[in-house]
């Protein structure tokens, strides 16, 4: 259970760690949208995506993301990548225009597939940056902030944030518990690794039921503890944690805002007025695609 390291918060003290979680959530969303902005010409898309990728790599260095972990989680997606490849090669799109001579395949499939994998990796990098530099609890505070206007329509934003933060708080506890029950049942001869479907099913049952029983007991005790300390979901609470917007937040916002704004403008221009072809503009030559 100790091998889940991907995306875990690291106790570093980098600029990215210091950013306000509310800000980071917005920046993450902006960057994700940027990646998916469409362009008519492939080369333009690739160049602009490459720019964003370069930016992400710089940020990852800044926030001391463990690249090895990132690679591991990309490796974990091999099945998805394989699946995409199959889709792109064997179910050709009507818009494909560059057949590979002598085969039923198209060059376009390579570009499309490579591009989608690249986008996936970038999405993964963005979330990794967010989760390694932000405490889960701060993320919940950030989310609660954005959900709070919804209180007007009786959306239980505070309850959701509280539930989320308690769930996060209990993840390590429940992982320990899981580990302990696995060992206890192994001592009673349960084999969690081998055996047929029926045996596996029984093994899982012998883990899940005790885990549930203890989780329910824990939740009862927890709710008692909360009640005794005066918690009432309906009444107002003051706040111990304060989220602060620093100067570096503004700076980060300006940079990401510029990237997002620039690429968005180009994209709108490209889609509605005239297609942008960077390579043509610089070299005066039409690229192959």
């Amino acid at each position: 259970m100790n091998n889940i390291t991907f995306g875990r918060y690291t106790t570093e003290n980098t600029v990215v760690h210091k950013l306000d979680p509310r800000n980071k959530i917005v920046l993450m969303i902006l960057l994700m949208i940027t990646i998916f902005l469409p362009f008519q010409v492939w080369s333009t898309t690739l160049i602009l995506t490459g720019l964003v990728l370069a930016f992400l790599i710089v940020v990852m260095f800044l926030s001391k993301v463990n690249f090895l972990d990132l690679f591991r989680s990309i490796k974990g997606m091999w099945f998805l990548i394989l699946f995409l490849m199959v889709i792109y090669f064997f179910i050709p799109d009507k818009s494909y225009t560059l057949p590979i001579p002598g085969t039923p395949f198209y060059y376009d499939a390579f570009y499309r597939c490579g591009y989608i994998v690249l986008r996936l990796i970038m999405l993964l990098s963005i979330t990794t940056i967010l989760t390694t530099t932000t405490k889960p609890m701060d993320l919940t505070y950030g989310l609660e902030f954005y959900m709070s206007p919804l209180k007007v329509i009786h959306f239980p934003s505070h309850e959701i944030a509280m539930t989320l933060s308690i769930a996060l708080r209990f993840i390590p506890t429940l992982l320990d518990e899981t580990n302990r029950i696995i060992k206890a049942q192994s001592s009673r001869g349960v084999d969690f690794e081998h055996g047929g479907i029926f045996k596996k099913f029984k093994a899982i049952i012998s883990l899940i039921i005790p885990l549930f029983v203890s989780a329910i007991e824990r939740s009862e005790e927890l709710s008692n503890a909360m009640e005794v300390r005066g918690y009432n979901p309906k009444s107002k609470r003051s706040r111990y944690r304060m989220l602060k917007f620093h100067w570096c937040d503004l700076f980060a916002f300006l940079i990401v805002g510029a990237i997002f704004g620039g690429i968005l403008t180009l994209s709108i221009y490209d889609q509605n007025i005239i297609q942008i072809n960077i390579i043509y503009a610089i070299f005066g030559k039409m690229p192959l695609f």
């Binding site: 206890a184 049942q185 001592s187 009673r188 039921i209 005790p210």
Partner: peptide
């Protein structure tokens, strides 16, 4: 055989 701490949590 090992009897773990708080073994009552292995009944199912």
């Amino acid at each position: 055989g090992i009897v773990f701490q708080f073994p009552e949590y292995q009944l199912f």
